[in-house]
Design a protein around this nucleic acid. Sequence first.
RNA 1: GUCGGCAUAGCUCAGCUGGUUAGAGUAUCACCUUGACAUGGUGGGGGUCCUUGGUUCGAGUCCAAGUGUCGACACCA
Length: 966
Amino acid sequence: MSDCKNTKDTTPIPTREGQGGGSLASKYSPAEVEGKWYQYWLDNKLFSSKPDGREPYTIVIPPPNVTGVLHMGHVLNETIQDILVRHARMEGKNACWVPGTDHASIATEAKVVNRLAEQGIKKSDLTREEFLKHAWAWTEEHGGIILKQLRKLGCSCDWDRTGFTMDEIRSESVIKVFVDLYRKGLIYRGVRMVNWDPKALTALSDEEVVYKEEHTKLYYMKYYLADNVPSDFVAGEGNIVHKDEKGYYAVVATTRPETIMGDVAMCINPKDPKNQWLKGKKVIVPVVGRVIPVIEDEYVDIEFGTGCLKVTPAHDVNDYMLGEKYNLEAIDIFNDDATLSDRIAIAQQKSLAEVSVSDDFVIGLEKYVGMERFACRKQIAEDMTAAGLMEKIENYDNKIGCSERTGVPIEPKLSMQWFLKMEHLADIALSPVMNDDIQFYPAKYKNTYRHWLENIKDWCISRQLWWGHRIPAWYIEQPLSTSPRGGEGFPWGKVIVAENEEEAYKLALETYPILKTLPPAGGAGEGLGFALRQDEDALDTWFSSWLWPISLFDGIRNPGNEEIKYYYPTADLVTGPDIIFFWVARMIMAGYEYEGKMPFKHVYFTGIVRDKLGRKMSKSLGNSPDPLELIEKFGADGVRMGMMLSAPAGNDILFDESLCEQGRNFNNKIWNAFRLVKGWEVTDGGQPEAARIATQWFSAKLRLAAEELADDFSKYRLSEALMTVYKLFWDEFSSWYLEMVKPAYVDGKPQPVDRATYDATLQFFEVLLKMMHPFMPFITEELWQALYERKAGESIMQAELHLPAATDADRQLCADFETIKEIVTAVRSVRSQKNIAPKEKLTLEIVKKEDNDYASIITLQSSISKMANLSDMNIVTEKSKGSASFLVGTTEYAVPLGSLIDLDAERKKLETELQHLEGFLTSVEKKLSNERFVQNAPAAVVEMERKKQADAQQKIASIRETLASL
RNA sequence: GUCGGCAUAGCUCAGCUGGUUAGAGUAUCACCUUGACAUGGUGGGGGUCCUUGGUUCGAGUCCAAGUGUCGACACCA
């Protein structure tokens, strides 16, 4: 034991043997401990859950991307889930945490495309089947890495239940739901304006568009009048007319000059005084030479730009609406990758053929064909300026809608897509959250949720991707191998939605009996007289994620099975508020639609993990630590604690490595407390009074703490719960309890501890370990196993925390102990001020007065003696001359100092305190002398003030007395 | 622009239905290498509770306005 301090040996303790603390290293080393116990938990199937008679507690993991790697956001999220799961498990619930991964169609497909590109393979050169082979290979190669990493963190997931959004069960569930919703009339297909990602080459949902602030330009372009303007033309009052040598013109402001190629009208507000002269006119689209009408609609903002709006129905959502309203043609000028289509040149020829337009206004569009959209914007602006068609260009700050995944600006595009009607689903999902059937933590997100549901638009669920669930829709076609069959009344091109191709054939024949009249086709596999071609599109990833809490228990394919009946609804969902619409809201919809019940009872929204300067963690800033390196450095328990120390629900957390350091230090503290206790030699001697009192007090303290802890958990205040156990262990247990029961040293040798104290201490330690286990699973298991002899396969994970409820006597004892602590601290403070060594024994005098409140303290005096290192405690009526005194409550205490006393300093200290007390008394008396206070305030409050007054008066008298005697 | 949250010690945050001259962790300062732990011990200092007004016997807490800040949504081409 004596050489402990110098040892650098960090070998973890042997678990069963080696009860002697003396063999333990002075520093806790997590590395081996953590690996060892995780394997033990796995070997003994301690995470596994099967339905039984106990109350279930279920969490489904927010599935990370299958090819992702662990980042700090995951650490926060998964730590919280693990804490909740472990806590529930120790409450005796049947805890089931289901892990899994998400196929993340856009992200994964993009990664596969990139890798193929590195190998010189273009996606377009591959068939769908070939591409999917590559994608699966990639998934198997990189998939599940993140799940392995979760084990390092200590996550107690039931790994046998691991799901994947594209495995068989989940895929079949998705298809089944699609078919069902289609048959319910909630899914439809149609041409709509959608958000097009020109890099990923797919449509996106509104939620997948993020807006970015950008500095752009506002271009003011000249649209010359096509009408002959009489020479005596006079615009009315208030009109603003533009005219130059080429003629009269209107000015249109736009941020996207390249889209003029799709212009089909110019729109003004009918009430706009400055543009009245344009009513009923026709104008020439510059560069293009197309003659377009001036239309009127109040949609146009009079104040913006010049009040003239160019209408391009194919490339702007609002213009699209105008186009619908006024029956305008939509000219799509872009290819799918947002390069300029050759349709623009064709359109120009067509428009020039109709009306003759002076060459002054026209530039041949061939040169722009194939150009990238932004290059074209720059080019066309230059060309227009050169041709005198540009009035001016201004700087303009704008928010651009960009693809969440690829980051490129979205192109609004008309296309044929599949949509899910949201009205009914939003209806069933709103009220459970608003009336707290499903509780949000923090509740502020209820507003966000409501706002979204009340303004919801139909969900575009089709994606032009291959990696994902292929839409189960087939189009009826004529077989290729036979000559065209034509014929009126045949359903060529009609869509059939079914769970598989076979079903689709059946359904096609049922729906269109006329198909039965066709002679069989000749080709292989074309026994029927028609062919079915499956839709090429895949489904939005979230269309599978939204079923996750149901599909993980196979509740879609096998409704009402044992598992879904037992585990659903799940208890808690832990996720970031950034996916409240993508995922949380939609799971609630699916939950009510398919199970008739909420998918989870509580939603815990985490904050975003930022660095200590408040910046988002990102690869480019290099401010995102690698969680695995942190775990190596501080241990998983240390990292978990570092994360949780400052992570109240919903608040962003400013992560700093020093928090993990704090966590590691705490582990070390626990470790060393264990070393102390396990190093004790035990005798059958009697229990010292100080130790007897201490054990009594600490068992009361534990009961109170357990209540506090339960309260914190019930409110999902996990960082406060952690702080509760942190202080309980470090301050109450280590600094007070252990110091009180610690046997003394005699002649440099530690004395043995009595059996009663030893047993109690071990029991306390076990309770503390259980309280800390959800937060720090590894070290608590290590020490729990070493504390007592355990059976094979046993674990702290399953140890329940049974503590009797705290009693009034417990509360009183703990309150008295707070007084003791004050006295001890005051004595220590005297030592510190007077430079008296802790070893030197002191005497403490309790000054007896009428109405003194020290009665209960006297019974605890042995503890005071021990902690303050006193030789004597005397009750006196008159304190010794030359003593330092202090007040605790209304009782005066004094430490005789003899020659050590510094009268000036003592006087000064007392005067400061006196001043403070007098100020306090004044404020209390002011209150009491206010008649309205005495009349209006509750009696208890007034009584309290009177007590404060009396106490203060007593204290002041006591200090005055002391001052006088000095 | 609309809506919402937040503003308390150097930092990160508690502070419940208004009622001790406001608390914690951390940082900081002083002292201490003692015999579980210097990844430690002991003691201390540190606050105009954003501003202004109001309600009230009484406001960090309730109300209003303002300022700052963060977020959601909507966007004017």
